[in-house]
């Protein structure tokens, strides 16, 4: 925690500040009997600086998408708080809430599903503007074209009259990004923006996002399961497991000196293309991520952890330790 405070004191205040955020989903039987809560996000804290590009990495079900949706205001947090530009997001309403929604853009995973199939591109890009009261047609057209140019789809009217199904996957994702940009947000949350795209297109889209991020000095939060794409597109990484952040550090630091056993396992499972891969069996921790309905006590990774210490890891929650400078890890191994 001390490092975070130090960092924020150095620069200006962070754009996003999340403290002990919890997003739980209640499970009900027959529509009313509460039978428990799925703790999708369970006590997450971090700060995002202005113009910073970060990645949240984890397996499916680790809570990274729920975290993204909570940041977007799509889920109400169960506890904790999210501050954006100094305002408590939970308290926003009416015009302030619309301002917040305009300030945070959203890029989704499945570009085809993210675009209403019955609208043409012009309409799709006009929608956010209409919602935010840009009534002047010419003004809307101007902003739509600017966004399209920014994602390298314009100029030209051809694309504006196309329907999503007429576009390639890459073009669809560019439209999705243009829609996120059209309201000129301060932050973009991209949830697996390239996982449904072909390899050659992935790089294009990632480069595009990075370029836009640096040109507009946006805060960019990537949600991804793919550590290998992160290196070139994020400054900082948060590794999530079972609803918690288990490790965070600058990209190179984290990839070269992973501290948390989970991160180490994750990195070990990722192949860099090499014909020799076929001849070796990878170390994969046994078992599967725990149920978020009944997470294990103590460290949530302990049932799969090769270094689990009985009496500690299965009893007490690890706090955040700082085994290396500016490198945080939630593991008892790093208790000093």
């Amino acid at each position: 925690m001390s490092t975070e405070r130090a960092a924020s004191a150095e620069s200006t205040s962070p754009l996003v500040s999340v403290r002990d955020l919890r997003t739980w989903f209640e499970l009900r039987q027959w529509g009313f009997l509460r039978v428990g809560s799925v703790r999708a996000v369970d006590g997450v804290s971090f700060d995002l600086g202005r113009g910073e590009s970060v990645a949240f990495v984890g397996e499916s079900g680790c809570g990274k998408s729920s975290l993204a949706r909570t940041l977007l205001g799509l889920h109400r947090p169960t506890g904790g708080e999210v501050s954006f530009d100094g305002y408590r997001v939970q308290d926003l309403a009416g015009r302030d809430l619309q301002w917040y929604r305009a300030s945070v853009g959203y890029v989704q995973q499945d570009p085809y599903g993210a675009l209403p199939p019955f609208m043409d591109v012009r309409r799709i890009l006009a929608e956010p503007l209409v919602v935010h009261g840009v009534t002047d047609r010419a003004e809307r057209e101007r902003r739509i074209r600017r966004a399209l140019e920014e994602v390298r789809l314009g100029p030209g009217d051809a694309i504006l009259d196309q329907f999503p199904h007429m576009l390639s996957g890459g073009q669809q994702q560019r439209v999705v990004i243009a829609r996120a940009l059209v309201l000129e947000p301060a932050m973009i949350i991209a949830d697996e923006p390239v996982s449904m795209l072909d390899a050659s297109v992935r790089v294009e889209i990632l480069n595009l996002l990075r370029r836009i991020q640096s040109e507009r000095s946006l805060t960019l939060a990537f949600i991804t399961h793919d550590l290998s794409t992160v290196r070139h597109y994020a400054d900082r990484i948060f590794v999530m497991y079972a609803g918690r952040i288990v490790e965070q550090a600058q990209v190179d630091e984290l990839l070269e000196h992973p501290q948390h056993p989970y991160t180490q396992a994750l990195l070990a499972a990722i192949a860099d293309v090499d014909a020799a891969n076929a001849r070796r069996v990878r170390d994969v921790p046994a078992g599967e991520p725990p149920s978020l309905l009944h997470p294990p006590p103590g460290c949530r990774f302990h049932p799969r952890c090769p270094h689990a210490m009985a009496g500690t890891c299965d009893v007490r929650d690890p706090g955040m330790f700082e085994p290396r400078r500016d490198h945080l890890s939630a593991c008892w191994l790093h208790e000093r």
Partner: peptide
């Protein structure tokens, strides 16, 4: 997802029902 996107940019309930779901 496109409805989630609409919520994220602030489309209201009526708009979502009439312009995103029904069409």
């Amino acid at each position: 997802p496109y409805i989630e996107a609409a919520r994220a940019y602030g489309a209201g309930n009526a708009r979502i029902i009439l312009r995103y779901m029904i069409p």
